[in-house]
Write a protein that binds this DNA or RNA. Sequence first.
DNA 1: AAACCGGGGAG
DNA 2: CTCCCAGGTTT
Length: 347
Amino acid sequence: MDFSRQLIDWYVVNKRELPWRDTQNPYFIWLSEVILQQTRVKQGLPYYKSFVKNYPTVQELAAAPQDDVLKLWQGLGYYSRATNLQAAAVQIVDNDLKFPNTYKELLTLKGVGDYTAAAIASFAFNEAVAVVDGNVYRVLSRIYGIATPINVPAGVREFKELASKLLNKKDPATHNQAIMEFGAMQCMPKNPDCDTCPFQKDCVAFNEGRIAELPVKIKKTKVKSLFHHYIVIQTPSKKLLFNQRDNSSIWAGLFEFPYIDASGGLLPVELTEHEVFKDVVGGSRFRESVYNQEPIIHKLSHRKIHAYFWIVEVEDEINGAITIEEAQERPVHVLMERFMKDFWQLK
DNA sequence: AAACCGGGGAG
DNA sequence: CTCCCAGGTTT
């Protein structure tokens, strides 16, 4: 069968209109690809528009403070994408504003790996290199009946080779768009639309009743529980303390209240005797109360965070404390965003 | 090779 | 509840 021909025929009829498909500007394409890493189109679209509006050129992104970029990224997750994006923009501007225009050169940009380099190279520069993302794994594993796990090096290699062999070298851009769109719109993970599928006759998985088994993925995510006791300082002038997380853990670079990491619940007496608490409050007299008796559960793909917020009114002003308005301008993770909105009735 | 890194939505 | 999303980097 002429795989690419059938694929593109399907695509021209069924494709969605998306803003990054109206351009060959490598900067816009790069932006969209990074935003869409492990992110659905529906979730990423408003962020794409916001970034294009705030940073219309790579120079403007390069010149932006990291905190501003993180603030625009707030709520999207995988925050290293934002810091890498900004760092890569600096790379490009420093390289005399020459946007890398080959697969190999694109790989040198921070945050650009195999998939993203292939996407930019083909979409913006028509280079014949195949993209292999979650959609491609699914489509190829089903049509060709390949049961090699997609998340082991041997599987990555096998699917990359097959995708390269099938690639339409005359029009790699349309081919790559088409296979991903096909995976997203027709050959979905659950309940794919096999009834109207143009590959039904040739699809090994369909003919052997193995649609639900493919692709094969080895699961290895184990969720770890964490217990965060946040200290919400309220000084006499209504200021609070905000810390910026270091870049060696989750939520790198985002701001939050100081917190105590303790397993299980924490009694008030245990809280106020804790080293971190004494350090935060200093020598001031204080009055503390817990905001939520039951933990607020915040789930990440690999973490389950049990969060408690302790409201601590201190009698003395504290050095480095900021206003609520200033806090709102800083990038925060969704757990913080939700608390702040609720507690201060914001927006 | 395995662990780490978010948040949302579908089923 | 589980799974997965236009993946990449670090260990």
